[in-house]
Amino acid sequence: MEQLGGYEIINRYYHDLFQISVRDHQSFYAYWELSDRKKTLLANHFGSTFDALTKVIRVYNVTGIYFRGDNAHRFFDIQLPNPCDNYFFHGLENDATYIADYGVFTFERQFMPIIRSNSLHLPRIGICGDGAALVPVTTEAQSTRVFHRITPQHHENFLPYGLK
């Protein structure tokens, strides 16, 4: 019989992962993993080893926009130390939506994204100012009892809960 205890966790899942989670109004946590296939392909593309490439995380502020890849309000890059598979990002603007890309710098120092994360919204800090729009209860949720799945509404302009 298999044991009930004494387990260890393998730290790799051998496929692409990139998840970011809210920590507080000015910081979030990111973890990622790149599949061996992608690592090899990247190494081949640059004629180099994967470890020798400059790994970068680019964080985009995408508040209120449908992000395509080149229309963020602002973005910044963090060069990652080798090896590194998670990071806490601090000192970010509050009340803003973020998306991050994990990628590498090319020899021309252009950023090449490999995996895109989910999006998240850092909460606003401070008391809400005057003039904030009133919020209605969504139509689907107006009856006392709901017997089906309520679809996420537009004010969840990012999805804290992804679907699998």
Binding site: T106, Q110, P113
Partner: peptide, 21 residues
């Protein structure tokens, strides 16, 4: 195809290959 601002076509085609794979 994933992209982030400008990259040369040569690198863009690699992104396309990743998407195809």
């Amino acid at each position: 195809i994933m992209y982030s601002y400008y990259t040369d076509f040569y690198h863009w085609q690699f992104e396309m290959n990743l998407a195809m794979i």
